[in-house]
Amino acid sequence: MKTVKIIILMATFWLTIHVSMAASLTVFAAASLTDSLKQIAADYEKTSGDKIVFNFAASGTLARQIEAGAPADIFFAADETKADALEKKGLLVNGTRKSVLGNTLVIVTPAGAPAINSPAELTNAAVQHIALGELKTVPCGTYAKACLEKLQLWPAVEGKVVPCESVRTVLAAVESGNVDAGFVYKTDAAISNKVKVAYEVPAADAPKISYPLALVKDAPQPEAAGKFIAYLESDAAAVVFKKFGFLVLSSPSTK
């Protein structure tokens, strides 16, 4: 009798978990979207009743996880090439991909550290370590490298580069003062008071920074995901994205 009770109890427990999971949506999103998406999701959860679960990491890492079969509903990356790779493998639902946001690359230095006024100053001997997103998996690092190559500074600074797990790791490394400078997005620099923006990279010197959003092919919750994608393109979401400093590329009001 006791065993039966335990089995019933375990079954109930399992069912509870299962049911509660059924109402939740998994969004794989670029680390730079962390704060803005959390706020948008909190608003959305209140009105829709759906629960949003995030996996924030470097876009390249997320793409690899989706390739490996991770249960993602939505892929929201910071680099079009990461979505290209998944699209080529047929892992995104055709016709759902859109470019929704833009961003600006900035050089940050630890608050209180000697100022840097131009990228060329990164070649100074006083600058020993420069944090960049890992060059292949972290879009911010890919963009930064392209920018430094364009300015013909790459060979001079390559040896100082400390590759980081994500754009937020770059930010943390600069905050700690363990590196002398780092490349992050304007939106990341804005959330920290331990770094200062030393230089804003003009759009002409950096590759086009564009955030693709798409429904994942094997999404466990395709319908709920479609609704959330629509919400991410709504005016309400655009307000939040703009507040954090993103460029909103396709909001209904601008169409």
């Binding site: 690899r64 292949k136 590759p163």
Partner: peptide, 22 residues
Amino acid sequence: AGNIPGRTTTLPVAIYQAVENG
């Protein structure tokens, strides 16, 4: 130590990075 190729990257870190890069 981070993951600086050729300067701080050790075997396990390189394996992790290789998987990340596909």
